[in-house]
Structure formats: structure tokens, C-alpha cells
């Protein structure tokens, strides 16, 4: 999108088309507006800048006034080493990847199957199922957190598999699987796939299962990527649920882990170094999947 704009500067402009910018008033408004927007972007990035500055600041300057900080500033990377030393980042990171990855994999499998079934196969009691699933979108997670906690404590399915799942990966993974929103995204996508597409496959002798796995899944790769990334981010960022159901460092997710480390009381420069390290995966992920993330957020928001 951006590229096209650069080639054809006037394409897509609305309130400031090039020929109107010859007008001095309009040019002035445009310039001021632009200045504000760029200043805003700088302000938005400022917290991160301050985070980096604090992270490399010598301890004795933390509580100094700004002028003194500027005068006596020395770059000191040892706080990063310290933060890395006191926090098992690697373990937290792997836990987060494991939890978020499993949730996303499970979610996608479950919701794609359900959506395909609802969209193309029309199971019995279609209306009831739809209503049941649709209504769960309205339930905010906070309202079911307490019963879910109790359920994880006394887990059982119809009297079998009696287990205490607190402090296991299962407790972090299982509740995340129920995400009706994904089903509806998938369903609206499958609804748009023409039926003859599937029919043609049937004629070619594909079985129903292989239609789903060999045709539908590959076709919906783009939407799977988007849903996967967005849900991954959500689970990665989640804090409330891990806070309740985990209590041992070997199972902490990254977000909970840095919270705990900071709760213990650390000087602010070490804290900021830890925060910086914890944000690296997010930034790297965004750099790689930037396009998908942006497109996916647009798609899901406007689908709702």
C-alpha cells in the first residue's frame, strides 16, 4: 500500500490533494498538522527511549534530576547482564512459547474444524450450536476466572481423569482453547468459499476428511496465519490467568516471570533492563510478521 503511494503521490489523498496544497493556507495547515503528528510519534516512542536510557544509567543517577543525568551520563550495560543473571529468561521464554504455541495450535484445529462443519456440513441442531457458541463471545474472561480456577483445582471430566491441574501447563493451556471468536472468523471465511470448490474435490475422489486437511486448510493458510499470530500475541501477553494458576518459577510465563522478579525489589535500572529484554521477542516478532499482524488486526476488528 505504502509503495503505491510513493510512486503516485496523489493517489488516495482526500483532504490535501496536491493541487490544493498550492494554496498557502492549506499548506500551512498541512505543515502544522504534520508537525503535530510527527511530534506525537516521537512522544509515543519516548517511553521506550526512556526505558533504554534508564537501563544503561548508572545506579547513582537514577534519582537525580534530569539536568544532572544529562551531565553525568555514562553508558553502563552491566544492568542487562545483571537482569539476565537474576531472571531465568530462557526458561520463561520457552514456557511462554510452549503455552502460547499449544493454545494456538489447539485453537486453530478445534475452531477450523468446528467452523468448517458449521459452514459446509451443517451438523444437526445447527441453530442451537450456533447460538451456544455465539453467546460465549459475550462472556468476559474475568467473570469465569474463579470457577475456572476451582475447576482446574478439582479437574475431572464426567468423573474421570481426576487431577489437580494447578501449576501445570494444562491449566494455562486448556481454558485458552475455548475461543468462539476464532470460530466465527473461520466461518465467515469458509462461507465465502464456493461450494463447487469442495464439490469438485469430491468428484475427484477426495474423502471428506482429506478435503478438510488437503484442501480447506491449505486454502485458508493466510487466515490461519493471521489468527495464529493474533492469538499467540494475546496468550503471550496474558497475565491475569497465569497469576492465578501458577506458583512455581519453572512454569512461569515470561510476563508473570518479570512481574515476579520486579516485585522482589530491584533497582530501577535493572528493572528496565529486564523489561527491555522481555520486550525483545515482541519486537522481533513484529518485525517479521508486521504485515500479517496489521492485516489481521484490521480483519478481526472489522469482522466483529
Amino acid at each position: 500500500m505504502a509503495k503505491k503511494k510513493r510512486n503516485i503521490p496523489d493517489d488516495g489523498t482526500y483532504i490535501f490533494p496536491a493541487y490544493e496544497l498550492k494554496d498557502r493556507n492549506n499548506m500551512l495547515i498541512y505543515r502544522i498538522w504534520g508537525a503535530v503528528v510527527f511530534a506525537g510519534a516521537f512522544l509515543t516512542a519516548l517511553p521506550f527511549l526512556w526505558m533504554l536510557i534508564t537501563a544503561v544509567m548508572p545506579t547513582e543517577l537514577i534519582f537525580a534530576p534530569i539536568t544532572k543525568i544529562a551531565a553525568g551520563f555514562k553508558v553502563d550495560f552491566s544492568h542487562f547482564a545483571r537482569a539476565w543473571e537474576i531472571t531465568p529468561f530462557l526458561g520463561y521464554f520457552l514456557n511462554s512459547i510452549l503455552v502460547a504455541g499449544s493454545v494456538v495450535a489447539g485453537q486453530i484445529l478445534i475452531s477450523a474444524m468446528a467452523a468448517y462443519s458449521l459452514s459446509k456440513l451443517r451438523p444437526p441442531m445447527y441453530q442451537v450450536i450456533m447460538a451456544l457458541l455465539l453467546s460465549t463471545i459475550l462472556i468476559p474472561f474475568e467473570t469465569i476466572a474463579i470457577p475456572l480456577y476451582l475447576f482446574m483445582r478439582d479437574f475431572s471430566i464426567a468423573g474421570f481423569f481426576k487431577l489437580n491441574l494447578i501449576n501445570t501447563y494444562w491449566a494455562l493451556i486448556l481454558p485458552g482453547l475455548a475461543n468462539a471468536f476464532n470460530i466465527f472468523i473461520f466461518k465467515s471465511f469458509f462461507d465465502k468459499l464456493p461450494n463447487d470448490f469442495i464439490e469438485a474435490a469430491r468428484v475427484d475422489g477426495y474423502s471428506e476428511i482429506s478435503i478438510f486437511f488437503k484442501i480447506i486448510i491449505p486454502i485458508s493458510r493466510s487466515i490461519i496465519t493471521v489468527i495464529a499470530i493474533l492469538n499467540f500475541v494475546t496468550i503471550w501477553n496474558s497475565f491475569f490467568w497465569p497469576l492465578i494458576v501458577t506458583n512455581e518459577p519453572n512454569i512461569y510465563t515470561l510476563m508473570l516471570g518479570i512481574y515476579k522478579i520486579i516485585e522482589e525489589g530491584q533497582p530501577w535500572n535493572v528493572v528496565m533492563a529486564a523489561v527491555t529484554i522481555s520486550m525483545v521477542p515482541t519486537i522481533v516478532g513484529f518485525a517479521i510478521f508486521q504485515k500479517q499482524v496489521m492485516r489481521g488486526i484490521l480483519f478481526t476488528t472489522l469482522q466483529e
Binding site: 478445534i110 474444524m113 468446528a114 459446509k120 451456544l132 457458541l133 481454558p175 468462539a180 478438510f212
Partner: peptide, 16 residues
């Protein structure tokens, strides 16, 4: 179709 929607229903029953 019922089979394919079943896992989702189970998950939603248990966790929603």
C-alpha cells in the same frame, strides 16, 4: 459435521 464440531463443543462446555 457433528463429529467435527464435537471437540469445540466439549471445550466450550468445559471451559465456558
Amino acid at each position: 459435521g457433528a463429529q467435527m464440531v464435537l471437540p469445540a463443543l466439549l471445550v466450550f462446555l468445559l471451559f465456558s
